Amino acid sequence: MLHAVCFDADDTLWHHERFFRLTHDHFSDLLSDYAGRDHLEERLLAAERRNVGRYGFGIKGFVLSMIETALEVTGNRVPGAVIGEIVAAGREMLGHPIELLPHAEAALAQLKGRYPLLVITKGDLIDQERKIAQSGLGEVFDGVEIVSTKTPEVYAEIFRRRAIRADAAMMVGNSLKSDVLPVLALGGWGVHVPHDLTWALEHDTAPEHAPRFRLIDDLGQLPALLDRIEAAG
């Protein structure tokens, strides 16, 4: 029997990356006089990769990386108005409405009471709390964990603190790197729900031969997957 079914939040329960992509487009337009779109994307991704260990995951770190990239590509001559636009874009992202992904609400309703349900998400504390509250899903979950990163050690500590056996836990999410592989490494179940717009830094190779790895098209398929796992014993 599973002790708990855990869910990632961003781009697993609700749309998230689409707002980053819109801001990417706006950023490229703002700096089009200084660099081409592809070059800007490369420089911005490099800045995010450098900075994620300092700023963490989330919108605030993204805004700082955009500002850093703007300074780099303009030789520190970026107009103040452009910096103002970047900050305004970040502020808008922090207030975007929550749009649930298809089947998320229905799947959770089916699973409520059948298993303890947890959210394990990473990012800015205030922003993640806002999104959970505005999603209307907060009451469905038996616990929420907001962490700065997702590693086997982080998951192990969450499971230990909540008296959940790691090998009886399931993590469901759109990121192979952060949601699936760390829990598989602990002997648990990892369920990948791909999202078309998953951030480049979350990509990894699917562990297709891992016995507890599963792939589903959307959350609507999760209850039936759990039925099959239980039936197999």
Rank of each mutant, 00 (worst) to 15 (best):
S135K: 02
H192D: 08
I216M: 03
D127G: 00
T149I: 09
L184P: 01
R214W: 11
D179P: 08
R165A: 15
R160T: 12
E145D: 11
K177R: 14
E145R: 15
K177W: 03
L137W: 03
L197D: 15
E139Q: 13
R130D: 07
N174R: 00
A169W: 08
H195F: 14
T205I: 14
V191E: 03
D218S: 10
L186F: 09
V183R: 04
A185G: 14
D196R: 14
P194D: 00
G138A: 14
A206K: 10
P152S: 09
F141P: 04
G190D: 00
E139F: 12
N174A: 02
P207I: 06
V191C: 06
R162M: 10
E145Y: 14
F159C: 10
L137Q: 02
A168M: 08
K177G: 03
K122E: 06
I164L: 15
L197M: 14
F213Y: 15
R212C: 01
L219N: 00
I126S: 11
I132A: 08
S148K: 15
V183Q: 06
G187H: 07
G220L: 03
W199D: 03
V180H: 06
W199N: 01
H195S: 07
V140S: 05
E157N: 14
E153R: 13
P152R: 10
A163H: 14
I126F: 12
I164K: 09
V191K: 03
I146Y: 12
I132G: 07
H195G: 04
R212Y: 02
G220R: 05
D142M: 06
R160V: 03
I164N: 09
M170P: 00
K177T: 01
Q134V: 07
I126A: 14
V154Y: 10
D142T: 05
R162I: 06
T149G: 10
G188P: 08
P211W: 11
Q134D: 15
P182N: 03
A206C: 11
V172R: 04
S135M: 01
P207T: 04
A210E: 08
V183M: 05
G136E: 02
E145Q: 15
I132Y: 09
V180N: 05
L186I: 01
V193S: 07
Q128G: 02
G190A: 00
W199H: 06
R130F: 07
P207G: 08
S175L: 05
P194R: 01
A166T: 13
A163E: 13
D124H: 15
A166V: 11
L181A: 06
V154R: 12
D204Q: 06
Y155C: 12
G138V: 05
T151K: 13
A169F: 09
E157D: 15
R165W: 13
G190E: 00
G190M: 01
R214L: 06
P194N: 02
G136P: 11
G187N: 02
Q128W: 07
L181P: 03
V183F: 07
V193G: 05
E139W: 10
Y155F: 15
Q134C: 12
A200D: 09
R160F: 12
A156H: 13
W189G: 04
I158Y: 15
G173W: 04
V147K: 07
R212M: 01
I126T: 14
M170F: 00
T149P: 00
L137K: 01
F213Q: 01
Q128E: 07
S175V: 02
R161N: 13
R165V: 13
V140R: 10
E157F: 11
G220Q: 05
D167L: 08
L215E: 08
L219E: 01
L181I: 11
V154K: 10
I164W: 14
E129T: 09
